[in-house]
Design a binder for these strands. Structure first.
Lengths: 211, 211, 211, 211
DNA sequence: TATGAATGAGATTTCATTCAT
DNA sequence: TATGAATGAAATCTCATTCAT
């Protein structure tokens, strides 16, 4: 009988609010975003927000979790694709994966971690445990497989797989900050990057050395 | 009996205040730092702050400028050291330069640019013009010298010198965020990074390729 | 047990606040009135004030408008009462109108215009358009009617209807300033004033002259 | 021996400061004028101001006194010019006197009295005693002389000489506020005003009446 | 659930006044 | 005298949070 046409399913609400918050946090930063703004963008009253998130900080945590959680599984699954050689994996799925990142909302979480991380150690720990160390382990295992295969030489990259993803972090921040000044062709840059890595991994161990 | 409230040192004050602000901005972020805090840390009254900086934003701009200005000259001077070969330059002064960065206050400016940049395009432009594009140009010229020398092959790195410094940005942020979780040996990582770069630049052009 | 803090009367609030502000501005002047005072007098929190008026200046403008708007129509309507001769109008409704002014809150707006006008040209323009020039026009039309009637001679008063209301401004300010020193009987003074005006308007044009 | 070329006579200082303050108070109002502004305009350091005027209020009082004092004598002297008939006096010296006012700095004191008077009763009393009541008395004596002469009839103007100067107050404020909207020809308006007054004072007492 | 008016603590900013020099 | 850097109390303004409805 009543007017229930415009009533949304209430279960969608928290997600909608989190999404609105994520967009605004990315745009203006956490501190500069007013709860009012989030409510307006989510099409919800301010009071309702406090029904789902007890404080603004809760909202921040929710935003961060909402970015990490759906990606954990994806990350885990990408790990071993045993049909491919290590080099094929790097030139294929790995390159494809990192190419997608600059156009994805990772920049949101990167910015939030950079700005708010120092005041929220538990978020940092959560992110480190569920994303960073997981990712680094995966890369290490990949390199090890290459070494075991005989594809790759043993190298310091196994200690510093960070170097494999550093350009991704760089590209994400660079594009978001200096996009107006320089349009970075991240696709080609990442291809070059992977090329360099593989070159190094495959080089004749008798030559070259490292400081 | 001592405490002399009026210290009369007009010339030193702006610098002292800027330094205090920089420290706090780095620690807690711009928004979360109260003008009061800066004043207290600088050992100065709140009112005096507004004698030197008309608004909190002016203070931010001053902090950013104070980081950039003294480094512009340093950057310019480091450019060409003609006695060295390009490779020697990379393994010597360049490596030394980037090794110093994670322990320097760069992380302050990186964080500030990431957080406040989007709302202060003129600061971003200033930083891009005076630091970023200058640095990239320098690297490009170095690579070109190597190519002209016959030391290096011609490569896509000339288009993407960004890859040469990406690990620095990475390390700065990584250490500041995850320092508690992993102590990154940036000295060795950077050495490995330079090694990889040179290996790539020197490799026999008949082999290798790029995706 | 009673005091209900939330009174929920959105529609009434702006008016209540404006009224409180008007009273205080009149009493102490705009600059010397603190927003806090207005809030307290309106029985409202400081924060709420800024929900309705974005700055203290907005509040001032609102006060001024609140004085002018309701009077515009009154002014318009008083214009022509065709059953009365021009003289009858002056001795009747006109006299009655100006007699009411010194006891009305006009002094508030007069003071505010005098003090704050110079820094708010748009308010001055608004007041001039909606009150002053309207009033002067009305007086001119009245005089013209008298001339057309044959009641009045044609005179310089038609150019300077200002002279007809100058005593009102005078009385308003004089009473508010020197009320303690001299109690001015404005009723009788205005009657004398109207008498003088009519005497002048009706005099035999062959006699008298003007410097 | 020393550099005393630029040293002003210290006795001129207070006057210079008062003049600067008067100009600024007139322009922006007392409250909106900063002590700093006055110092700058007077070409003096802020500290020095406090040597001559212990508080900002002292400065205000000084400004007001500086306007009143030099005019008291002038007013007294203008009183009786026995060679002239009352009408000649009104059409001559009186008209000339009031014509000068709108172009003089009276508007400064008028504004200051209107705005600051309510909070400084002693200033109001001072002004009333030394200017207002003095002026009204003078006008009353003039009218009395006319009546005694047989020039004028006895009238309510003797009770309300205020009506004789009301247009002056009006013109001063009107010009200062609405000068941009209407350029008032105060010379002609005052002439008309005096004409009306004299007409009334001289009219045949058998006719006319006053409500 | 849902609203948004209302609060109040706390932030930024202003400015008369002081005081070492 | 003369300066102007420095102070601090008080003003304006902001915003996360509450709560009557």
């Amino acid at each position: 009988m009543a007017q229930r046409r415009f009533r949304r399913r209430k279960d969608a609400r928290p997600g909608e609010i989190t999404a609105a918050a994520a967009a605004l946090f990315a745009e203006k930063g956490y501190a500069a975003t007013r709860v009012d703004d989030v409510a307006r963008r989510a099409g919800v009253s301010k009071g309702l927000m406090y029904l789902y998130f007890r404080t603004k900080e809760e909202l921040l945590k929710s935003v961060i979790r909402s970015f990490i959680e759906p990606r954990i599984e994806a990350l885990r699954q990408r790990i071993e694709e045993p049909e491919l050689s290590a080099e094929e994996f790097l030139r294929g799925p790995f390159l494809q994966f990192i190419r997608a990142l600059p156009n994805s909302p990772v920049h949101v979480i990167v910015k939030l971690m950079v700005t708010e991380g120092p005041r929220h150690p538990e978020l940092v720990a959560y992110y480190w445990n569920n994303v960073v160390s997981l990712g680094l382990d995966t890369l290490r295992r990949l390199l090890q497989r290459g070494v075991d295969n005989g594809e790759f030489r043993s190298s310091a990259l196994q200690e510093f797989p960070h170097l494999m993803i550093a350009p991704v972090l760089f590209a994400v921040l660079y594009s978001s900050l200096f996009g107006k000044h320089e349009k970075l062709d991240t696709d080609r840059m990442f291809a070059e990057h992977v090329g360099i890595l593989i070159e190094s991994l495959k080089r004749d161990p008798r030559r070259g050395d490292t400081g």
